[in-house]
């Protein structure tokens, strides 16, 4: 399956919906979107990965790169993910301690609201 990307803003939060496979072939498109969003002043990003079928280290690198960019503007990049096979790669690499990972968009929005 290819990669489908969509995004919309709610209050101060930009939600990026990702569907499909994030790998060495498709990850550049996600990287471009994240860079574009940051360049346009969106510094609080929530990447919804609930429809991601596959994620490899290339995708992780893109997410880490996005996090570094938003942090440069005192922003945030957090994730929505409940799939065990996707969470496993975050655990293996220690990235569960780096990213805020939520069970749903609503849960993330509530946490984001508390932090504002």
């Amino acid at each position: 399956m290819d990669l489908k990307l969509d995004h919309h803003s709610e209050d101060n939060l930009t939600i990026v919906d990702v569907e499909g496979e994030i790998d060495v072939y498709t990850a550049p498109r996600l990287r471009e979107l994240l860079i574009d969003l940051v360049n346009k002043g969106n510094f609080h990003l929530l990447v919804n990965m609930e429809k991601v079928d596959f994620l490899d280290s290339t995708g992780l690198g893109v997410l880490v790169g996005g996090l570094k960019r938003v942090r440069a503007h005192d922003g945030s990049l957090e994730l929505v993910c409940t799939q065990e096979r996707i969470l496993k790669i975050f655990r293996i690499t220690g990235l569960t301690k780096v990213f805020g990972i939520y069970a749903s968009v609503e849960e993330a929005k509530e946490a984001h609201g508390r932090d504002k």
Partner: peptide, 9 residues
Amino acid sequence: QVLEANGSL
């Protein structure tokens, strides 16, 4: 390499 777990990248 494994990323450090102290929140830094």
